[in-house]
């Protein structure tokens, strides 16, 4: 079975050593997904697999046959911007731009995890049905995406703007 990348089927690499990251970058020339460490330590290579975020550098491409991959290039149609992409620009959630695609892909999946009620390390009660998107929740859940330029505040602001519910914003204000 092929891998689907941004909706298009892509044949598996013949060399099983090829990571999903290198398949994207070197064979498909989808270079929006970045290589920052190639060791699972920076999150720059974050992509979505069937909607869930993974790091593509430690993913052997052959392990992902039949799965649907979404990269930064596939988040929005052609010239349009995903609301989070627009919010990153507005809140200056990046400087050099290298970790940015990974941050954005990661945040899109993170919002979905919160919507599904999945807890994090900073979630108070594990059995609570819903989880508020507070600044601390975002900071903890985004900690797998390093940024060396120091755009952390802008990134969190952008995420809160797009995904923050009014309830979360009230909680935030009360913090």
């Amino acid at each position: 079975m092929p891998i689907t990348v941004n909706g298009s089927p892509v044949p598996l690499p013949s060399d099983p050593r090829v990571s999903l990251l290198d398949l994207l970058r070197e064979e498909l020339h989808l270079t929006g997904t970045k290589k920052g460490c190639n060791q699972g330590a920076c999150g720059a290579c974050t992509v979505l697999v069937d909607g869930e975020r993974i790091i593509s550098c430690l993913a052997l491409a052959v392990q992902y046959d039949g799965r649907a991959i979404t990269t930064i290039e596939g988040l929005a149609d052609a010239d349009a911007l995903h609301p989070l992409q627009a919010a990153f620009i507005e809140h200056d959630g990046f400087q050099c731009g290298y970790c940015t695609p990974g941050q954005i892909c990661s945040a899109v999946a993170m919002a979905d995890e919160i919507a599904r009620g999945l807890p994090s390390h900073v979630t108070g009660a594990l059995d609570a049905g819903t989880i508020a998107l507070t600044r601390d929740e975002v900071r903890e859940r985004m900690s797998g995406n390093l940024c060396r330029c120091g755009a952390h505040n802008g990134i969190v602001d952008a995420i809160l703007e797009v995904y923050g519910t009014s309830e979360a914003k009230v909680l935030e204000a009360a913090e």
Binding site: G40, T46, V49, E52, I54, I55, L58, M110, R141, G144
Partner: peptide, 8 residues
């Protein structure tokens, strides 16, 4: 680890 790694 991170959310991405825990997903894998």
């Amino acid at each position: 680890a991170s959310a991405q790694i825990r997903n894998m």
